[in-house]
Design a protein around this nucleic acid. Structure first.
Lengths: 144, 144
DNA sequence: GTTGACTAAATGCATATGCACATATATCTG
DNA sequence: CAGATATATGTGCATATGCATTTAGTCAAC
């Protein structure tokens, strides 16, 4: 195995692996905090993205969340089933499905935000003085 | 919606959302590169982690990959089906399932590494001079 | 040796992820 | 307006993720 990439080298080097790993671990922390409201991190993020006056077309929402359109289609299903979001065809364009929070969705989101904040504060604490903003700026370059 | 967290604020602030988003996007780039060998990023990472002389117990491997034990159990299934990894009960302890690369697995990994490296180099390029090591160090604190 | 605590792994369930493909609506061109 | 083209969404498929629970093997205490 002399010419093979050693795992310790790969593990240290691979940007994707590091990001996936930390994303999994951090997700678990946030979801533990969100447990009382029974929301996954993806669901919470989706509700938060819908906290605006106007309904949002599916494709626009997916783009803003940085996820595949078809993934969002399915992620919305449990939220609709719980009555937290609702979608209506756009009057302008019959193809477009516009998504919005229901009153129950707004209500639950307001309960969820303080729980989210606990996990967020804990994460900031773990950064031990390092500012998140510049780290995030670097990471965002990888999203090109 | 005056007392609600505005999405622009949340989106900028939320560490989990930023990590999940960039992990998704970066994963897509690496998986596009790995397409010729038909490996997902998780599968490639698993093979790379097994590039060592001894077979590795499932729990140890899961710990090193930073994922849930039960997730790894299922992630191994397609790799075993393709004959890239094989598992044998440990002679010392009948409960332990020790995982190792097959010859086909070593072969495919050696084909995959150069493809991985393309995506890795592209990611490094996107960082535009910024060093990955210190960013990674900050991120690793979040994995506590 | 049998019981009981402990540990390794698998399974049931629900959700998440995205590519390839299919469908429906809109728009443009002649 | 008919036909071609483009766009918004949904579906089929395969894989990924982890919690709660179950199953099975180990080991210590007696």
């Amino acid at each position: 195995m002399s010419d093979a990439l050693k795992y310790t080298d790969f593990e240290q080097a691979c940007i994707a692996q590091a990001l996936r790993r930390v994303a999994r671990k951090v997700t678990r922390r946030y979801e533990a905090a969100l447990r009382p409201v029974g929301l996954t991190m993806g669901q919470f993020t989706t509700l938060a993205a819908l906290a605006r006056p106007e309904a949002v077309p599916l494709t626009v929402l997916a783009e803003q969340l940085g996820m595949d359109r078809t993934t969002l289609t399915r992620d919305l299903a449990p939220l609709e089933r719980r009555g937290l979001v609702a979608s209506t065809p756009s009057p302008d364009d019959g193809r477009v499905r516009a998504i919005a929070l229901t009153d129950a969705g707004k209500e639950l989101l307001s309960l969820a935000v303080p729980l989210w904040y606990e996990a967020q504060a804990e994460s900031a604490r773990l950064l031990d003085g390092a500012d998140w903003a510049p780290i995030r700026e670097q990471l965002d370059r990888l999203s090109a």
